[in-house]
């Protein structure tokens, strides 16, 4: 490390450490974890429910920090990420690593002691999965990286559920599958209009390795699997009509948007309005789907 980086590392503000936790990703994690917790049958003391969500949030933040520590070299060359605390030189890599490991150990231990060891074990596994399996092993090795990353992002509602029930049944597995199947269309839509950035960083995203046509077909394919799976809770009797109606409407829009992406032939970002639209809608889709699940349980039961 240069003396320059050493001295600027002392200029970190508390916000730089907070930024290492990827707070924007964390909002989605907190939301889906809280929905898993609220939708689960059974009762948890509200304070322990709060502790469980806090531990999931901090654990996810720690995984985000481990990811940023490992990826500082990629982040430095991508416009979107070059100003993150490590590539910008405000936080030294070793400090970030220590910070991340301490938060991982802390969140898993507190989850185990306060809430339960199944939830703690799932949390530990999800951190390992995101930081090691996804970030270290697969992200730079395969264009299917996003599919694997989706599995990491799909853990929070399962952990929230396990915090309440202490076991894992079919329903949390379906919630896992919904986020898992949702991630590829969501991220590949983004990757399509950000392709230049990823290609510069040498990350083998699908649009870089296989081109936009293959990526668009995959987006449509995952969307067509996602929508029926999202309706499975209704078919199995685990959710009522509120969830059913909301999810069917959301699914219809998702497929219309995915079809528009599949039909698009643009190869430059300026012609990728359908991709941008699907990307934005996919975020709304996930928020509303989980909100409907909770509304369904709170109102109908």
């Amino acid at each position: 490390m240069t003396t320059q980086a050493l001295s600027t590392a002392h200029y970190a503000e508390w916000r730089d450490y907070f930024a290492l936790l990827k707070p924007r990703v964390m909002t989605l994690v907190v939301f889906t974890a809280a929905c898993g917790l609220l939708a689960a049958p059974g009762h948890i003391n509200p304070f322990l429910g709060f502790v469980a969500i806090l531990c999931i949030a901090v654990g996810a933040g720690a995984a985000g920090a481990l990811n940023m520590w490992y990826e500082a070299d990629i982040d430095a060359v991508m416009k979107r990420t070059a100003n993150r605390p490590i590539p910008a030189g405000r936080v030294a890599p070793n400090e970030a690593l220590t910070f991340a490991l301490a938060l991982s150990a802390g969140s898993v231990s507190i989850m185990g002691l306060a809430v339960g060891w199944l939830a703690a074990a799932l949390l530990a596994f999800s951190i390992f999965f995101y930081a090691v399996v996804y970030t270290v092993w697969l992200k730079r090795a395969t264009p299917q990286n996003i599919v694997i990353g989706g599995a990491a992002g799909a853990f929070p509602p399962v952990i929230g559920w396990a915090a309440v029930t202490g076991d894992i049944t079919l329903m949390p597995v379906i919630l896992f599958a919904i986020i898992f199947l949702w991630t590829p269309p969501h991220f590949w839509a983004l990757a399509l209009f950000m392709e230049a950035d990823y290609s510069k960083a040498g990350v083998p995203m699908l649009p870089v390795t296989h081109g936009p046509a293959v990526t668009r077909r995959q987006v449509l394919l995952y969307s067509l699997i996602l929508v029926p799976v999202s309706l499975a809770p209704v078919a199995l009797g685990h959710a009522g009509w509120i969830y059913g109606v909301v999810t069917a409407l959301l699914g219809a829009v998702f497929i219309v948007d995915a079809l528009a992406v599949a039909r698009n032939t643009a190869t430059v970002a300026s012609g990728m309005a359908p991709e941008k639209r699907l990307f934005k809608f996919s975020l709304l889709y996930l928020f509303l789907l989980f909100a409907a699940l909770v509304a369904d349980r709170l109102i109908l039961s």
Binding site: H10, Y11, A12, E13, W14, Y17
Partner: peptide, 14 residues
Amino acid sequence: ELFQARRRSRNLAL
């Protein structure tokens, strides 16, 4: 001065 201000904010947050 900047260094001290930021150190103060870090300590307060911790």
